[in-house]
């Protein structure tokens, strides 16, 4: 039994007529990055807002925030992908639904939206935990100084909370990149899908998967290094950096 390794495969032309298999891979990487980064922006903005809302004294806002997190976190990402891609357009007025379905790159937009919302729930959970890990006295001190509640969040609570949750946010960032592979189920030809299409056309399955795996690991390294640098840059003198964090379940 022998597998015929052929690492030269990446320089051969692919049957889609758009260049070599390497080009296929690079195009896939491009979509992975575009999807992951756009989704991450959405996730950060929404996640921080929802996380803040969950710590405010306003009861109905808190409930709304809790519901947001429970829904988007507890339904498998794949199911959410399908719901947004297949079911959501049916819920809209017919004309809008059709327009949505015929939108060029609708898989990309759907993936970004879905992944962004899914991740926002996880970012929200981290943000809430970060804010609540601050001593209650910090909020009191801000309020006692005469700051309004929004000012207290802006100048006192969030700057500390976001620093504290940087390590878990780093792993959420890594998760977004990895989770973007789920978008292949709705037809987005991102990195994993392009590796699979190489396998399908050329049968050089292990070369294609090895290349994709290496690229994912490389992306991982870049993100981790970048976040370390950022953490160091915003570190506060006199405070012990966040030590070995408790492990968290997740991907």
């Amino acid at each position: 039994m022998k597998y015929n390794w052929n690492w030269g495969i990446f320089w051969q032309l692919s049957p889609d007529g758009r260049g070599t298999y390497l080009d296929t891979l690079i195009a896939g990487l491009g979509w992975t990055l575009a999807t992951a980064l756009s989704a991450w922006v959405i996730a950060l903005i929404l996640g921080i807002i929802v996380g803040v809302v969950r710590t405010t004294p306003v009861r109905w806002l808190r409930l709304l925030g809790d519901a947001w997190v429970e829904v988007f976190r507890n339904v498998p990402l794949l199911v959410q992908m399908f719901l947004w891609f297949f079911v959501f357009p049916e819920l809209l007025p017919a004309s809008v639904g059709v327009w949505l379905k015929q939108l060029p790159r609708s898989a990309f937009y759907t993936a970004v939206l879905c992944l962004g919302l899914y991740t926002s729930a996880r970012v929200a959970e981290q943000t809430r935990a970060g804010i609540q890990s601050l001593a209650r006295g910090q909020r009191m001190a801000g309020i006692a100084l005469g700051l309004t509640l929004p000012q207290t969040y802006r100048f006192v609570l969030l700057p500390m909370a976001l620093r504290i949750v940087m390590p878990p946010l780093t792993s959420e960032f890594l998760n977004v990149i990895k989770n973007s592979a789920v978008a292949l189920t709705i037809g987005l030809v991102e990195l994993t899908a392009s590796a699979r299409s190489i396998q399908e056309f050329s049968f050089q399955v292990f070369e294609a998967f090895t290349a994709a795996t290496l690229i994912y690991m490389f992306l991982n390294l870049i993100v981790v290094a970048g976040m370390r640098w950022l953490e160091k840059r915003v570190a506060i003198p006199g405070l012990i950096g966040p030590g070995q964090a408790m492990p968290q379940a997740g991907h």
Binding site: M1, Y3, L174, I177, K178, N179, S180, A181, V182, L184, T192, A195, R196, Q199, V205, F206, F209, A212, T213, Y216, M217, L219, N220, H251
Partner: peptide
């Protein structure tokens, strides 16, 4: 552990689907 944790599950599923028979 590091390889597994930096690879998407979907890709890992593909990997093993082909690797296990070999």
């Amino acid at each position: 552990v590091n390889v597994m944790r930096s690879t998407p599950l979907v890709l890992v599923i593909f990997w093993f689907y082909f690797l296990v028979p070999w």
